[in-house]
Write a protein that binds this DNA or RNA. Structure first.
Length: 317
DNA sequence: ACATCCCCTTAGCC
DNA sequence: AGGCTAAGGGGAT
């Protein structure tokens, strides 16, 4: 980086010239806290009244005052447009919510989490994160991602805190599996390593999947070690712009049993009620129901139902 | 080709 | 303190 840029950054910081995004009719509702704590992303923490996260190669420091987002990025290079894209502020949320609002159950979830938006994550980080998410709760996933970033990422010091970028495909592809395992990944370490090698050698081009349709992208993802239907649907929804994806995890299964059992055969409900995990067909049946029932933006419905179910069980974030 | 069974590590919570 | 659960996947049968 040039001296000119360095000088600009110092000047920028010393003036405390935080950048701003004014939320208007089109970008409302938006609730930063709901969006960062709903369980989609694992890299944000609240420190002294601000939210800090690492996005791509930058630390992002952001807070919301009613209709205004105030933010800094460090080392810099992220502007308001980047964050508008990251937080999907151009999604027409009132329209989406009215489309998916098909009954009282989803209605309550929408009401409670009206400002929750899906975040547009980086596909690579999303892929590894959700391979790690297999059979883990959210606090544990955060720990794994943090450990991977500390060990294989690049440190950034900012506001007397230390942050770490997410490792690049090469960093994990060349890693010793024991070092990955020590990040508390357990049996996920081998899957992360294998998938990293595939991505690193460009045998699968993640970014290009945004240009393909849902089914094609889904099948590509399913070929990666550690990626089954649920993980694939999360990656499609959270990083590849497939808002029709409807991931089904244990929380959504509970929601189906409690609120949507009438939409399925009784024998189907009985069958899945007691079992721990879903068979591939059972998964597919529930996921397709969600897509059919909620429509084009079923993924948003899934997020509201997921957030609502978790909030009712008052589990830790 | 399908379906079913069973194991996989470990942290966080009660 | 010990048992249970967790944004499931994969290999054997």
């Amino acid at each position: 980086m040039s001296n000119e840029n360095t000088y600009f950054r110092v000047l920028h910081q010393s003036l405390d010239a935080s950048l701003k995004i004014q939320l208007d009719q089109l970008t409302t509702p938006f609730n930063l806290e709901q969006t960062l704590t709903c369980g989609q992303v694992f890299r944000w923490r609240r420190l002294g009244g601000w939210w800090y996260g690492v996005v791509d190669e930058n630390v992002v420091k952001i807070r919301q005052n009613n209709g205004e987002l105030q933010f800094h990025t460090f080392p810099g290079g992220m502007d308001a447009d980047f964050l508008k894209n990251y937080f999907r502020l151009s999604d027409d949320l009132p329209h989406i919510q009215s489309q998916i609002n098909r009954d009282e159950h989803i209605g309550k979830a929408i009401q409670r989490f009206a400002g929750l938006r899906i975040i547009r994550q980086q596909p690579w980080e999303c892929l590894i994160s959700y391979i790690c998410a297999t059979f883990k709760n959210i606090p544990a996933i955060k720990g794994m991602i943090l450990n991977l970033s500390k060990r294989f990422g690049t440190e950034i010091a900012f506001d007397r805190y230390r942050f770490h970028t997410f490792p690049k495909p090469r960093d994990l592809a060349n890693a010793d599996i024991e070092h990955i395992r020590k990040c508390r990944l357990g049996f996920r370490a081998e899957r992360v390593l294998k998938t990293s090698r595939i991505i690193c050698h460009e045998e699968s081009d993640l970014e290009s999947l945004e240009e393909t349709d849902y089914e094609y992208a889904r099948n590509e993802l399913l070929s990666l070690p550690g990626v089954g239907q649920k993980v694939a649907d999360c990656i499609l929804l959270f990083s590849l712009d497939k808002l029709e994806a409807f991931p089904v995890d244990v929380w959504l299964k509970r929601v189906i049993l409690e609120s949507y059992s009438g939409c399925f055969e009784r024998s189907f409900i009985e069958r899945i009620r007691d079992k721990k995990s879903l068979t591939p067909q059972e998964y597919r049946e529930i996921s397709r129901f969600g897509q059919r029932y909620f429509g084009r933006h079923a993924g948003y419905a899934q997020e509201y139902l997921f957030a609502y179910a978790r909030s009712m069980m008052h589990l830790s974030v």
